[in-house]
Design a protein around this nucleic acid. Structure first.
Length: 582
RNA sequence: GCCUGGAUAGUUUAGUGGUAAAACAAACCCUUGGUAAGGGUUAGAGUGCGGGUUCGAUUCCCGCUCCAGGCUCCA
């Protein structure tokens, strides 16, 4: 633990002390430091706590801190500790666990507040705890298990200086301006109408344009990299999903079956079985492998209502999906080729703030297959990432039910982590679908499948992109690339010519020939985050001819003002910008 | 699903136990204006839905729906 963590941890003790003073019946549980502050989970029993109670608790904290000259640790025996926390079942549970692990039981005291705690505190709370703020109330299950009682979690933050605290609070406000839900509404990128249903979104024309550009990029680039693109249906027989194992292990995410001609069908939650069928459509030779079947396909998954969130968590997910069928000796190279493609994409979108998560099995979940096969699959991934020297974080319980995976995790504007791209190694489905190829000795062999979606889902990824760019998309993605602005109505004829010319050259453009002042048109185009504005008035066209002007003025959405530049050179520079994804 | 909070014109917000106000956007008129809001006029919501209290509810109470932030889960 570093100093900031210690400061935050000690402040969480202070929070607990204030709560106990104001609510003597409350049972305090756990209060760790977190990335941007701290929290404390408290069982208030029948008392309801809301945001409006926070100032009162903050005041109490300020009173108590005056008497916290130091914080002292002490080791206790099990019976002493149990006596001390006799009326707090949560602490008793923790003590039992500490004893079971064979660790020492320690308590820490400041003023008259004592807490069961493994330590990690600052020296002088009174001196150091000054610039803190309680932020919000939330519910949290005891020990993070939804079968347990829900506790009240109070979040707060503290910094060593007032400047740092103010800066953090300011950043929180700024982040709200980048929220994709807000920008999506302002720029009309997508819509989630209540009438359609929760988690179901419409890509509005401008959002659809962004998606189409990205899909075009995906298909073009994947074709270069040897992928074959298919289209598959959105529903399939239930038996298909029984074969794949989804019906047994993924059912809670799947929508109820529908009956068609006396047979049960399911809406697909994944594309895997569809692509398995492509592979199975004819006998395969070892010479054919790897075979890379790809599809930007929409799958449907039941997500809990409380977890739906704009584009980042929806109930229909369009994956940039592919299944690579290969020989076992090709797995590592194929894995790395996918990883190279992921890096290529992240570079295009200038996403640097991400981490890689190695998703492994956890003990409590159910999975397909034997330990032996899982170990082999994990080995392949580890072999690949080590070969490339990739930094990753291990995470138990984040595996798919059919195999381990490596995920790309990206932060949103509020600093929350979202899984985007994923590469998964699967020895199970080939078995279940009885996939085969003939090897060089004319023997029947099983291929391995790599499931991969470099962006994850277009809904989530583009939601993250909106926040990443704060709505100011690079030229190639901008729904409107150029606005043509006549200085006054007198120039409408010539600006119309320019507008039509640009459209013919496949630029996405608007003609602002409404009766408004130039300033107002500029303001509108800037707020719409249109990268370029072409401005035409007396200075650009000396006489009102019908030909396109040689010289134009251009303003960027950032406010840069380029006067009297050559029209055709400008167009050429835009074309090369688009080719370079900038 | 669970916890806390919220829902007022297309959008952003104001407001009150006596029947809803403004800005932007829209339509029309005047203005023909040179780098982030020219001026005027008009239209537009009966306050998420249902019920209760009341002479009277957008305002108070209850239930529901949806949204936000968390928890659990996940692309």
């Amino acid at each position: 633990m570093n100093n900031l963590d210690n400061l935050r941890h000690t402040t969480s003790h202070l929070l607990a002390a204030a709560v106990l003073k104001l609510y003597p019946k409350a049972k305090i549980t756990l209060g760790p430091p977190i990335e941007n502050g701290f929290y404390y989970d408290i069982d208030f029993e029948d008392v309801k706590i809301s945001d409006s109670d926070l100032p009162k608790i903050e005041e109490e904290m300020k009173k108590i801190i005056k008497s916290w000259e130091k914080i002292e640790g002490k080791e206790l025996k099990e019976n002493e500790a149990k006596k001390l926390f006799a009326d707090n079942p949560y602490k008793l549970e923790l003590i039992d666990e500490i004893v079971k692990r064979g660790e020492k039981i320690t308590i820490y005291q400041s003023g008259d507040f004592i807490d069961l705690c493994r330590g990690g505190h600052i020296e002088n709370p009174k001196k150091e705890i000054k610039y803190f703020k309680l932020l919000k109330i939330a519910g949290a299950y005891w020990r993070g298990d939804e079968k347990n009682k829900m506790l009240t979690r109070i979040y707060g933050t503290i910094f060593p200086t007032k400047e740092e605290l103010d800066k953090y609070l300011w950043q929180l406000e700024e982040a709200k301006k980048r929220d994709h839900k807000k920008i999506g509404k302002e720029l009309q990128l997508f819509l989630i109408p209540e009438e359609i249903g929760q988690g179901l979104l419409i890509w509005m024309p401008k959002g659809a344009t962004i998606r189409r550009e990205i899909e075009n990029l995906i298909i073009k680039e994947q074709t270069k990299r040897g992928y074959l693109h298919v289209y598959s249906p959105h529903i399939g027989k239930k038996s298909l999903w029984q074969t794949s194992g989804h019906w047994d292990l993924y059912r809670e995410k799947m929508y109820s079956p529908m009956i068609i001609d006396n047979e049960e069908y399911l809406i697909k939650p994944m594309n895997c079985p569809m692509h398995m069928m492509v592979y199975k459509s004819k006998p395969r030779s070892y010479r054919d492998l790897p075979i890379r079947i790809a599809e930007n396909a929409t799958v449907y998954r039941y997500e809990q209502t409380g977890e739906l969130s704009g584009m980042l968590r929806v109930r229909h997910i369009t994956q940039d999906d592919s299944h690579i069928f290969c020989r076992e000796d090709q797995v590592v190279d194929e894995f790395l080729a996918v990883f190279d493609y992921i890096k290529f994409l992240l570079k295009i979108f200038k996403i640097n703030d991400y981490y890689l998560r190695l998703g492994l099995r956890s003990k409590k979940e159910k999975y397909l297959g034997s330990d032996e096969i899982w170990n082999k699959a994990e080995e392949k991934i580890v072999q690949a990432v080590e070969k490339e020297g990739i930094n990753y974080l291990k995470s138990e319980g984040d595996a798919a039910f059919y195999g381990p995976k490596l995920d790309v995790v990206i932060k949103d504007s509020l600093g929350r982590n979202w899984q985007a791209g994923t590469i998964q190694v699967d020895f199970m489905l080939p078995e279940r679908f009885n996939l085969e190829y003939i090897d060089e000795n004319n023997q029947i062999k099983r291929p391995v499948v790599i499931h991969r979606a470099p962006l994850g889902s277009l809904e989530r990824f583009i939601g993250l992109l909106i926040e990443h760019y704060a709505g100011a998309f690079p030229l190639w993605l901008s729904p409107i690339q150029i606005a043509v602005l006549p200085v006054s109505d007198k120039f409408n004829l010539i600006t119309r010519k320019i507008y039509q010319y640009l459209k013919e050259k496949n630029f996405r453009t608007v003609h602002l020939d409404n009766n408004e002042t130039l300033s107002k048109k500029i303001r509108w185009a800037t707020l719409q985050k249109i990268p370029y504005m072409i401005i035409i008035g007396d200075k650009e066209v000396k006489e009102l001819k019908r030909e396109l002007p040689e010289k134009i003025s251009v303003r960027t959405r950032e406010g840069k003002d380029l006067r009297e530049i050559n029209f055709y050179e400008f167009i050429d520079s835009l074309k090369s910008q688009i080719e370079n994804f900038s």
